[in-house]
Design a protein around this nucleic acid. Structure first.
Lengths: 115, 115
DNA sequence: TTCGGAATTCGATGTTCGTCGAACATCGAA
DNA sequence: TTCGATGTTCGACGAACATCGAATTCCGAA
């Protein structure tokens, strides 16, 4: 289907568990990080990840239902953006702490520090 | 088995996704909240939730592997506590934001405010 | 040394999830 | 109106997960 208007949940109704589950998947977390690095919206087509379109659509739906992400339709294409300000109101500090955390230290390097 | 010494991961090796997945389950989130409200440790036996022992053990294992929780063994019983300070170092603000967020507003009440 | 309590592991079961390709719906352009 | 591009939905599959009861292991007490 072409991009249709989607229901975006009122963040007050969204449960924390839903948001955490949405973020607890590598591909979706990557999408969120990508959007956060952007400070604006991103065209659907420009989200290129090594997954099928249908899979991407699925992940975006989950992010949307969790209130993390927003769709805007323009003609036949659509744009995605983070609902960061609203999220800050409902889940203060959550998005920021998720985004700010870096990669884990490889086990080998940790081993080094144990001497 | 009786409570045995368990491996607790170095938090530097723990991935954010692992932590989020551990928290993204109602029962586990409840356990974390319960421990956080305690400011100390809690006896295994005192964690009474409407689930089988084996299920509780399973959830605690996941929380432990995610670096969220710690076991201390004393004789034949064990005590659980949150690794809150270490977590703050590895994932600044995350635990706090997760703990501070309240319940969602019921859909009915949200509807009220739409007039 | 035997017994019972404490927590873990094992095996089984049903459910949810991520993934894909195919079919579909919607829009703009030719 | 026809066509191509754009996302979405559907149906199917295997993997991962939550859950349970039973078996197991370890410890302390009798």
């Amino acid at each position: 289907m072409a991009p249709r208007e989607h229901a975006h949940p009122d963040l007050r109704e969204v449960e924390l568990v839903t948001v955490l589950a949405a973020l607890a998947e590598p591909t979706r977390l990557r999408i969120v990080r990508m959007l956060a690095a952007l400070e604006g919206e991103r065209a659907w087509k420009d989200i290129d990840l090594p997954i099928a379109q249908s899979t991407l659509s699925h992940h975006l739906k989950i992010l949307r239902n969790a209130g993390l992400v927003q769709n805007r339709t323009e003609g036949t294409r659509c744009f995605i953006s983070l609902r960061d300000e609203e999220l800050e109101g409902r889940f203060p500090g959550l998005l920021e702490s998720v985004l700010s955390c870096g990669d884990p230290v490889p086990a080998r390097a940790v081993e080094e520090t144990r001497r």
